[in-house]
């Protein structure tokens, strides 16, 4: 594992901790998209099906279980626990999951057919596509609230940085490993995923540089 990959994983873990902290500190779920969390839970559950059939390393298994467990916990909090349940604004979080799920499933089936993938690989491919767009509901909620809370802003920043660091990891691996397996589907999705954050990054850094409140143009 190289430094970019490790930094990417840590950025991902960090983003989840920040979201949990944000819920705990603010004692509300304002501006948090439950739909994005649900998409991420589907991403993790479909990608990490291999947990059931093989063991790679303690680090690998621990991270996978951490991602699934923490995302499930966040969803449980917002759906069923007070004060999150009553402060979560369903009407602002109106993204329809099937608009992401169905195209990703169709794309994954086509990709798997072409590449001769089996059952687990099909779901793995589906999760790669779905992860690329999983942040969309959260970005839509953010647009509607306009002013972005500090911790929510940091959460999205570290979540975006995670896939960006993975891109650096792939470049590093391609240069340093002799028999590196190039997966262009993963590359393309990684670029799309990171690009979706570009606009957010721009306003995030601008607010950090100039100070004041962090708001998005409407």
């Amino acid at each position: 594992m190289n430094i970019f990959r490790f930094a990417g994983d840590m950025s991902h873990v960090f983003s989840i901790i920040i979201l949990l902290l944000r819920l705990h500190v603010a004692k509300n779920a304002n501006g948090v998209s439950l739909k994005t969390q649900e998409l991420f839970l589907i991403v993790f559950c479909t990608r990490y099906l291999d947990l059931l059939i093989r063991f790679i390393s303690l680090y690998n298994s621990a991270m996978k279980i951490l991602y699934i467990g923490s995302t499930a916990a966040i969803i449980h909090m917002i759906r069923y626990r007070e004060p999150y349940r009553s402060t979560y604004d369903r009407s602002q979080d109106s993204f329809r999951l099937e608009f992401a799920l169905i195209p990703c499933l169709v794309l994954a089936m086509i990709t798997s057919l072409i590449r001769g993938f089996g059952f687990i690989e099909l779901f793995w491919t589906f999760s790669i596509y779905l992860e690329a767009v999983a942040i969309l509901p959260q970005l839509i909620v953010l647009q509607r609230y306009s002013v972005v809370e500090n911790l929510t802003g940091h959460y999205i920043f570290f979540l975006g940085a995670y896939r960006g660091l993975y891109i650096l990891n792939w470049i590093y691996r391609a240069y340093t490993e002799k028999h590196y397996h190039h997966d262009y589907v993963v590359y393309a999705c990684g670029f799309v995923q990171t690009a979706l954050y570009a606009d957010f990054f721009y306003y995030y850094f601008q607010s950090k540089y100039y100070g004041g409140t962090f708001s998005l143009p409407t």
Partner: peptide
């Protein structure tokens, strides 16, 4: 095309 069975990325 083979799936990268050794893939340990998250």
């Amino acid at each position: 095309e083979e799936w990268d069975k050794e893939k340990d990325e998250l």
